Simulated scan of single mutants.
Amino acid sequence: MRKTRVLIASLVLLCGTALAVVSPDRWTTSDHADTTLAALAQAESPPHVPPVPLLWKVSDRNNAVYLLGSIHLLKEDDYPLSADVDAAFDDAARVVFEVSPEELGSPEASVRFRQAAKLPEGRTLSDLISPRLREKLHRLLARQGGSLDQVNRYSPWFVNLSLMLGLSHSLGFSPELGVDQHLMQRALEAGKPTAGLETIDDQLRALADSPIGEQIIGLEDFLDRPQEMPGELADLHQAWRAGDVPGLEAIALSEMMVRTPRTYQMVNVDRNRAWLPLLREMLDGRGRDNVLVVVGAMHLLGDDGLVALLEHAGYTVERICSACGPGDQAFPERPVLEDAAGPVSLPIGR
């Protein structure tokens, strides 16, 4: 199993605010990664079908919450999305994201992000990383016309993010094309109310307070294995496009739990638990309106994911996936019917 998956998973599937705020063209890739780009572009044929959605419907007696697993970096040819997603969007009276579009688009967002990314006064990145790693980072930045001094005041997680965004941009991925950004624009155009499960500060705190040692693991993985990064990102992208729950868990979730357990706890588990009461209020409250909730895909997967947490709380949980066969479902086999409103997944008895 390739170690770079920890970095890719934590930034692409978990932390949407970070990708939305950082400029994707600030950084570029290393020479080693560049040599793989042409071969990768030839190997990947343009997709001709919509991605299989990571979409669940959670219901009680009065209403439903749709949970959609987003990936925060996508390509133009990943659109249009599945008709299942369109149907859930149309059925929802409002759309809820990790952070509200209003806060994400505020002028203060970028400033707060940069403040959170900086190391405490008196500390530098050079002091935190080994001489070997410092030299690799220096050479990479020098090849791109930069210097270590430009990043020396920033935390390893921020440098990780910046390097990965440079690589993903070279491969045709963009934060502006992420599912959350796409649906924020659709909600605005449709006049649907929007909201957030947390604030920008909540999300940045989860990144900035993660252990420095675990942050350095991601930076070390990138600098030691730059040639593996394009393939890693392609693997993750294809697993998301296929709606492959076991595949995504194998690629990202399992290794992150083992190699960076505290970061996994902070950016995934703790945030899921903080969101759970908000989701339950959407279901248990007096309102009858359905809601679409869009979060990074990893927040829905595994025993710590929102899907499992809500199922364990006793709600009816159904995967909505007209393109899935019985073996592709994340839960025990359920018959899938079609009606005028789209696919309907029938829960089996518990």
Rank of each mutant, 00 (worst) to 15 (best):
S130P: 05
E249N: 04
A341K: 09
S100R: 06
P131C: 07
K192Y: 13
D84L: 03
M184N: 03
P120L: 05
T29D: 09
R5L: 11
Y66F: 15
T199L: 05
P343C: 13
E281K: 10
S322H: 14
I71Q: 08
L68T: 09
L40S: 13
R132G: 02
L301A: 11
R334I: 05
T17H: 00
S170A: 15
S23F: 01
I8R: 08
R271K: 03
E176C: 02
L292F: 08
T17Q: 02
Q144K: 13
H182A: 12
N268S: 09
V245P: 00
R2C: 08
P343L: 00
E103I: 05
T4P: 00
L283N: 01
L177M: 13
P46E: 15
T29M: 15
A20E: 13
G145H: 03
Q203E: 12
S59E: 11
R286W: 06
P246N: 10
F113A: 00
M229P: 10
Y66C: 06
I71P: 00
D244E: 07
E103K: 05
D289E: 15
M266I: 08
L279F: 05
G349R: 13
D90S: 13
D31L: 11
D60C: 00
P50S: 09
E98N: 04
P261R: 15
A187N: 04
G69T: 05
N63I: 10
L40Q: 15
E214H: 04
W240V: 10
E228N: 08
R94H: 09
L7T: 07
I348E: 08
L165W: 00
I200R: 03
W240E: 04
C15Q: 05
A250D: 15
E102W: 03
E214I: 06
P47T: 15
P53Q: 12
L171T: 04
R139L: 12
E135F: 07
S45H: 10
Q144T: 07
P277Q: 07
M164G: 07
L276C: 12
G231R: 12
L171C: 11
Q181M: 13
R5A: 11
D180A: 04
L37E: 07
S345K: 01
A33S: 09
L137I: 02
L253H: 05
I71T: 04
S168P: 03
R350S: 12
S126Q: 15
K136D: 07
A88K: 01
V49H: 11
A109H: 01
P46M: 11
A190L: 04
Y315P: 01
A83M: 13
V99W: 09
L67F: 08
R26S: 10
